[in-house]
Design a protein around this nucleic acid. Structure first.
Length: 268
DNA sequence: AGGAGCCTGCGC
DNA sequence: GCGCAGGCTCCT
């Protein structure tokens, strides 16, 4: 369940379940999930306490008391299941952490695309991340600069985690709809006012998008205005919602009210 | 810039 | 069956 609000929720759940507790066991149950792990590094976790948990974009970092870090990425379908050691493992359990307080934290992921790795003290994430989408560092000035020389369309640009960290496919579409921007517009063609609207739209979209459990849904959700709604009516203008493919990902958008800013300028 | 691929389940 | 999926990396 991999968009930023969901990862934030998951990271908090992890923090709550672990807070200060020592790890007594750490085990990968699916080889693909541990593909970035060196054979011995999981054992280094045993005996360490989890001091705190941070989220950076959609990455989770559990900071251990010796300065090393447990780095987890849910990709498409990962999630934490918190229970106790006596309970049965949940379906799709791919990685298990057991704590001396009796808690058991399981990474459940049907597709097993999640990754778990241990970073040495002082190491940093291998990926370049832009400012977090819900941080103050992410503002119109930053986004404008980051997009200035990009010739790719704005929608795939928003998915580029080095531009801004934490936006996924669903909320990229939803934010562009809110800001009334055509997803196909070259990123560098957005004007200052478009970028400002877009930043506000991103903030709004990321501040909703969750039900009480921290999950989101697609079909049947009143919150999603365009995503997964091909051929349905745009809630704003009634036009039939379109689906296109950009950078091999689905983009849903409204051809009626999401306009190309360049065209808007020539037709006042 | 575009596509394949990773792995598995689900809906048609 | 087949095609699709909320992400990301790596390759042409």
């Amino acid at each position: 369940m991999p968009e930023l609000p969901e990862v934030e929720h998951a990271a908090r759940a992890l923090a709550r379940a672990t807070s200060g507790a020592r790890i007594v066991r750490a085990k990968v149950l699916h080889p693909y999930v541990g593909r970035n792990l060196r054979k011995t590094s999981l054992r280094r976790l045993v005996g360490r306490a989890i001091a705190r948990v941070e989220r950076r974009g959609k990455h989770q970092l559990a900071m251990l008391d010796d300065g090393s870090m447990l780095h987890v990425h849910f990709r498409m379908t990962g999630d934490w299941v918190v229970s106790s050691r006596e309970q049965e493992l949940p379906r799709f359990a791919r990685f298990v952490l057991e704590l001396e307080n009796g808690a058991r934290i399981v990474l459940a992921d049907p597709r097993a695309l999640s990754t778990v790795e241990v970073l040495e003290p002082g190491a940093s994430l291998a990926t370049m991340l832009g400012p977090d989408a819900v941080s103050e560092q992410f503002d119109a000035a930053h986004l404008r600069t980051a997009l200035a020389r990009r010739r790719i369309a704005i929608k795939p640009a928003l998915l580029d985690q080095s531009v801004v960290a934490g936006i996924g496919n669903i909320y990229a579409a939803e934010a562009l709809w809110l800001a009334r921007i055509d997803p196909r517009v070259p990123a560098s063609r957005l004007g200052a006012r478009d970028v400002e609207r877009l930043v506000r739209a991103i903030r709004r979209v990321l501040s909703r998008g969750r039900d009480g459990s921290g999950r989101y849904t697609t079909a049947g959700s009143a919150r999603l205005n365009v995503y997964d709604r091909e051929a349905k009516r745009c809630p704003r203008c009634g036009t039939s919602i379109a689906r296109i493919v950009q950078a091999a990902r689905s983009t849903y958008w409204c051809p009626g009210c999401q306009v190309n800013p360049a065209l808007r300028a020539t037709r006042p």
